[in-house]
Simulated assay, not measured.
Amino acid sequence: MRKLILAFGGSMVLAAPLASADVLGVGANVSYWDSELSGDVVNKGSAVDIENDLNLSSDSNANFTAYFEHPVPVLPNVRVNYASISQNGSGQIGLEAFDGILPGTDVDSELDIDQLDLTLYYEVLDNWVNLDLGLTARKLDGELIVRETFVGGRVSETTVDAVIPMGYLAARFDLPFTGVSVGGEGNLISYSGDSLHDFNVYGQYEISLLQLRAGYRQMSIDYEDDDDKMDVELSGPFASVGLTF
């Protein structure tokens, strides 16, 4: 399968460190994302509308993030993020056949997307305005299974599998003496006809070690892997709870 890989060596110098954490910092959070799904999936030249034809609906969208920050200016900070998106539904193939399944056929479908991010970043600003810049390597695994509903019916499987480099940006603005802040973060790449972006904006409240966050997230995947292609978008509100040390 076609892989899109970027070597990190030498690239990190583009994000020259201008600030660093005063002390060691460790944090983690878990979140739930209530997302709506739209777009198309292509298998060997035939396409299906995953919203209107397959009627996919959210089953579970879980997200886990952990980070480690340190006071060594030369070395980047580290952030790891894992997202698991699972959607299923029952629908009907549209006016054109999809991977050998005839138009008008009743089908059951499952869409699973797993993402594992490793982000190396620097703190460019670290006061009431916080700004991080870095690079992310995203391991993307996506699979759409479409089954004809009758016994012995045809089963179609569409998969994408890639390691994708992305730019990383995070900004946060702290309101003095309140524990309240607003911010946003995102990853982005567009290369050779493929493009991915993953952005969120949020409001946050911190009390002692506890961090509460709520906001809106949008993710778009337009990626082709051999004869399989996913062109999907997910968006909706999210909420998270975390601990910082």
Score class of each variant (00 low, 15 high):
172 R>N: 09
158 T>C: 09
193 G>R: 09
22 D>N: 11
25 G>A: 08
112 D>M: 13
26 V>H: 05
78 V>P: 01
14 L>D: 12
130 N>V: 15
45 G>Q: 08
174 D>W: 06
180 V>A: 05
45 G>S: 11
53 D>S: 08
11 S>Y: 13
76 P>Q: 05
241 V>C: 05
13 V>C: 12
104 G>W: 06
223 Y>W: 07
187 N>W: 08
71 P>F: 01
217 R>C: 00
210 L>M: 10
170 A>I: 02
137 A>S: 13
156 S>N: 10
48 V>C: 06
105 T>V: 13
144 L>M: 08
68 F>T: 05
175 L>Y: 07
106 D>W: 07
81 N>G: 06
226 D>N: 13
60 S>H: 10
202 Y>S: 00
87 Q>F: 07
79 R>A: 05
93 I>Q: 01
116 L>Q: 06
14 L>A: 15
17 P>A: 02
191 Y>D: 14
147 R>S: 14
128 W>L: 15
130 N>A: 12
228 D>Q: 04
42 V>P: 04
2 R>E: 15
237 P>E: 02
227 D>T: 14
116 L>D: 03
145 I>S: 12
214 A>F: 03
203 G>V: 00
179 G>W: 01
53 D>I: 04
108 D>L: 11
126 D>A: 07
26 V>P: 05
219 M>L: 15
71 P>T: 01
61 N>S: 05
243 L>M: 12
45 G>F: 10
195 S>L: 08
231 D>S: 14
112 D>W: 05
201 V>L: 04
58 S>P: 06
11 S>P: 06
104 G>T: 06
229 K>A: 14
125 L>R: 07
84 S>D: 14
20 S>F: 05
90 S>C: 11
1 M>V: 15
83 A>H: 01
79 R>K: 13
17 P>L: 00
199 F>E: 08
56 L>R: 00
157 E>V: 15
86 S>F: 09
196 L>E: 04
153 G>T: 11
102 L>F: 13
167 G>W: 07
185 E>G: 02
134 G>P: 02
229 K>T: 11
4 L>F: 13
139 K>N: 14
31 S>D: 03
207 I>N: 09
174 D>Y: 08
99 D>G: 09
137 A>D: 13
65 T>V: 13
30 V>T: 06
88 N>R: 06
218 Q>F: 07
153 G>E: 15
32 Y>N: 02
185 E>F: 00
144 L>E: 02
168 Y>H: 07
16 A>I: 13
150 F>C: 09
197 H>N: 15
95 L>C: 08
229 K>Y: 10
111 L>R: 00
242 G>Q: 00
193 G>F: 06
181 S>F: 03
211 Q>N: 14
14 L>P: 03
25 G>P: 00
81 N>V: 07
162 A>P: 07
104 G>A: 08
20 S>T: 11
95 L>F: 12
86 S>M: 12
137 A>G: 14
